[in-house]
Design a protein around this nucleic acid. Structure first.
Lengths: 217, 217
DNA sequence: ATTAGGAAGTGAACACTGTTCACTTTTTGA
DNA sequence: TCAAAAAGTGAACAGTGTTCACTTCCTAAT
């Protein structure tokens, strides 16, 4: 297994290595752009190669397979979600605000790249892989756990419930909203409500309902 | 546009039509079986054709395209969900039981065919299609709306909230659980909880939290 | 019973896809 | 300067969805 290159400072790299890294990044960049506006179906190695003026085979000098390439994209994507949640959790707002914000930020950031978000949850993951235990997805989930923990410690959330399980339930609620909104762009447009509901209002209501459900009664 | 064959009674059909219908059904059947245990990736028209001893081209005498074929599968899938929800809603149980049951049944039935459920929500739907307004998916959602309506009418759910929007939020929560459980078979197995949480217990908690969030306080 | 017409079914082809591999060109470190 | 390694390529393989001319078979009307 080769040493991960990007853990070394760019300044103490050989020019060749820096160049390689730049090409790698440009491949990922083009791939992300293509997926963002054509979906994962309209994205192929051959078209990607053409886009950046390489031969298809060249891509395989940088990535083991198409899957590896898009997995890296997904990981970076969840990395971005992670930093956003991190910023919220580290803020000085009161708990209820932070909690509300935390859920919203996850969904909003997910909807920034609908194709990628949907792609990240398509297909069944083999449990025997278990590599994804230290993925950014898992790290973001840890924030959720600590949020529930804090709510229980403050005596606002029902402490009788298993913290981790509650966090999973909350994640499911957030993921559901993100997934549906990404999948059905017209999700919020309905004949039955006269004026179209703004995404913002929906997310507020959604987060309210979820957190409401956690409170002790 | 040809008249939909299956709206005519089988008894008043020509033998050829009945035969055609049987072949069509057997194609769908094989397709469902293949997707169920190999996923949508391991499913191809050519393998399907081989499975049922036809040429690939023959499939296209029955279905316009691969997408049309699997769309029909998805529609039937949500039809099954629909009848299950229908049974629950028509039962004589008290409201809170029915509501709880309704959410669980959706998730449980979705998990009966994880690949199909995930497939049904992959990719972005073009809003201009608008055909899916009378799909079984939409019909199942109508049940959810009426459930929220009943809760509000009984004065148990907060009546100040927009019924349809609340129903959408609830759907998102259910979809999220179904989607995550289907996507990550090991979703409930965690190092952090000593004993593994049963799916049953999780679904109970999840439905509790959601409905809890709807109650007036 | 015969025959015309349409439905059912097929093999070959087209234009794609991911991936590999022998091969050439370029870059690099000693 | 030169060998070794890295970067890049064209051609091929096996697979995909789909189409189309073609045959075979069934059925409805004469």
């Amino acid at each position: 297994m080769p040493e991960p290159i990007d853990t070394v400072l760019a300044s103490e790299m050989t020019p060749a290595a820096r160049r390689r890294l730049r090409v790698r990044a440009s491949i990922l960049d083009a791939a992300e752009r293509m997926i963002a506006d054509a979906g994962e179906d309209g994205f192929s190695i051959r078209r990607l190669a053409e886009e950046i003026d390489y031969s298809p085979a060249a891509i395989y000098k940088y990535f083991g397979s198409k899957d590896e390439l898009v997995d890296e994209l997904k990981e970076a994507f969840f990395g971005r979600i992670l930093t956003h949640i991190d910023r919220v959790q580290g803020s000085q707002e009161p708990f209820s605000h932070r909690a509300h914000h935390c859920l919203r930020v996850y969904i909003e950031e997910a909807l920034e790249k609908p194709h990628q978000y949907l792609g990240a949850f398509s297909g069944i993951v083999d449990p025997d892989d278990a590599i994804q235990n230290e993925s950014n997805k898992a790290r973001a989930f840890d924030y959720l756990i600590s949020m529930v923990e804090e709510g229980q410690a403050r005596g606002q959330f029902d402490p009788a419930r298993d913290t981790v399980v509650v966090a999973k339930s909350v994640w499911a609620c957030c993921h559901g909203a993100a997934s549906l909104l990404a999948h059905l762009p017209h999700f919020l447009e309905s004949m039955k409500t006269e004026s179209p509901v703004e995404r913002d209002a929906f997310l507020d209501l959604h987060a309210d309902i979820i957190l409401n459900g956690l409170y002790k009664r």
